[in-house]
Design a protein around this nucleic acid. Structure first.
Lengths: 144, 144
DNA sequence: CCAATATAGATGCAATTGCATCAATATCAA
DNA sequence: TTGATATTGATGCAATTGCATCTATATTGG
């Protein structure tokens, strides 16, 4: 009976989970300390900002960010209520809607980036050279 | 104004978050499909199994797994109630307690590993050579 | 020793997540 | 066309998480 995942694979997974938890908690802590919302809000704002005028359908956002449908649905409730995102009627699918970032949303994303960017620099950049970071990204890309 | 995190660093973080989410959801989905509890249960069982006879104090488990205190406290309630973990009096600190894995706990961990190990093999092993996995683990290790 | 402080773990309550399922369209096959 | 199926997004309810705070015991400085 050969072991299914070899030791290198297991170690890679453990290291991935650990590194993620560590980086994530460091970043989230900094955002919270600055009185800012959590990363998932940032991710939504950034996707919508990139999408521009046309906005995005919830299901597109859902796939882009790998969110659960019900989760995104409720996150959008909150973000719309907070005035960061506009829910617009969707011309070509009456089941659906179009989401667009608001001016306030853009402003918040910008303020968040100031903290988020610094946090990435500290948590990741401070520990890897640019070359290492590039190699890491490439390797991780294969997992997608 | 120099950008704080350079592009390679940002890419590495994005890739890390994405790879983690993807691998995690694949693994959790397989566990759930097999009617098994989630990874955090596995992590606890495995730590306690490694700790052996002496068991571990909650705060040790907390640090080993990077759990929040209140989170672990409640997880232990559930696992003790499920008969997977024994809560024992702690001889040298009357505030504390000692956690030990039960026989049932060991059995469950074993059954979980069958699924979990396969999942790691598919989600990670299937996409990286042993050499790549080793390199990835090394790089991720620097983030700890 | 004793008061001040720190550490271990629990818990009430609010917010979020997960699960199952629903209603409303859209699409497709006969 | 039309009935069957698929897709989009919402929602009731249970489980989990997060936050703040509490109690009990340990430790430490005077």
């Amino acid at each position: 009976m050969t072991r299914k995942p070899d030791d290198e694979t297991v170690s890679a997974w453990i290291a991935l989970a650990r590194a993620h938890r560590l980086a994530m908690s460091g970043i989230e802590a900094r955002l919270k300390a600055a009185g800012l919302p959590s990363l998932s809000w940032y991710d939504v704002l950034w996707e919508l900002e990139k999408a521009g005028e046309d906005g995005l359908r919830p299901f597109e956002l859902e796939r882009a960010l790998l969110f659960e449908q019900y989760n995104l649905s409720r996150l959008m409730d909150r973000m719309v209520k907070s005035g960061l995102v506009d829910r617009c009627v969707c011309p070509d699918d009456r089941r659906g809607q179009t989401l667009r970032i608001s001016t306030e949303g853009r402003a918040l994303r910008h303020r968040m980036w100031a903290v988020y960017g610094d946090a990435i620099a500290e948590v990741i950049g401070g520990r890897l050279s640019a070359g290492e970071a590039q190699a890491l990204a490439a390797m991780l890309g294969k997992l997608g």
